[in-house]
Computed example of a mutant assay.
Amino acid sequence: MRAILDVILVVLQLYVWILIISAVFSWLFAFNVINGRNQFVATIGNALHQLTEPVLSRVRRFVPTFGTIDVSPIIVILIIFLLQNVIRYYIYPNVF
């Protein structure tokens, strides 16, 4: 059971990194630092969008808009940190 919890913790941490990379990628794309017409860049952007958008779109339904600032990745990261701490401090010690 502890191995399953370890895998869940690793997957949650990887998703945090995917969210951070997606946010940085969107900033680079918005400020024309990277070329959106490049096929490799478009593929990376599409993959990041497909990985993050299902979760972020659900959070955006409940979060008010702050102009052009999207705070949904921050909220998802905070929720993931909360889940990780609940697993580490409450579930993990009680598993045999």
Rank of each mutant, 00 (worst) to 15 (best):
I4Q: 13
G67I: 11
G36E: 03
L9M: 14
V24Q: 06
L83T: 10
A23Y: 03
T43D: 09
I44Q: 07
Q39I: 13
R60T: 03
R61F: 01
I75K: 02
F66R: 12
F96E: 07
I79G: 15
T68W: 14
V95M: 13
V41T: 09
V7E: 07
Y15D: 00
I87D: 02
I18P: 01
I44F: 11
D70R: 05
N32F: 05
N94G: 11
V11C: 02
V41Q: 04
Y92W: 15
L14K: 03
S72R: 01
V71R: 02
I77K: 02
L78V: 12
V24E: 07
I74Q: 03
G67R: 15
R2D: 13
W17P: 01
Q50C: 05
V55Q: 12
Q84V: 10
A30P: 00
I80G: 08
R58N: 15
I44K: 07
L5S: 06
L82P: 03
I87K: 04
T68R: 14
I20E: 06
V11R: 04
Q39D: 10
V11A: 14
S57L: 14
M1A: 11
V10F: 10
G67P: 09
F62S: 14
V76F: 06
M1S: 14
N38W: 05
Y90I: 13
R2I: 12
V7D: 06
A42P: 01
V95P: 06
F96H: 09
P93G: 13
V16H: 04
I21Q: 03
S22D: 09
V86S: 09
V10Q: 12
S26L: 00
L14F: 12
F66I: 15
L78W: 05
A3C: 08
R37S: 09
L5P: 07
G67A: 13
H49R: 15
I21R: 02
W17A: 05
A30E: 00
V59N: 02
I75F: 09
L14I: 11
L56G: 07
L19R: 02
T68I: 13
L28T: 01
F62V: 14
I4C: 11
F81N: 13
L9W: 04
L51W: 08
M1F: 12
L78T: 07
I75A: 05
R58F: 13
Y92H: 12
L19F: 05
Q39E: 12
V33S: 03
M1E: 11
I75M: 05
V86T: 10
V95E: 04
N32H: 06
L48T: 05
Q84G: 10
P54H: 10
L56K: 09
V76G: 04
N35H: 06
Y15I: 00
P54S: 11
Q39M: 07
T65H: 15
T52I: 14
T43N: 10
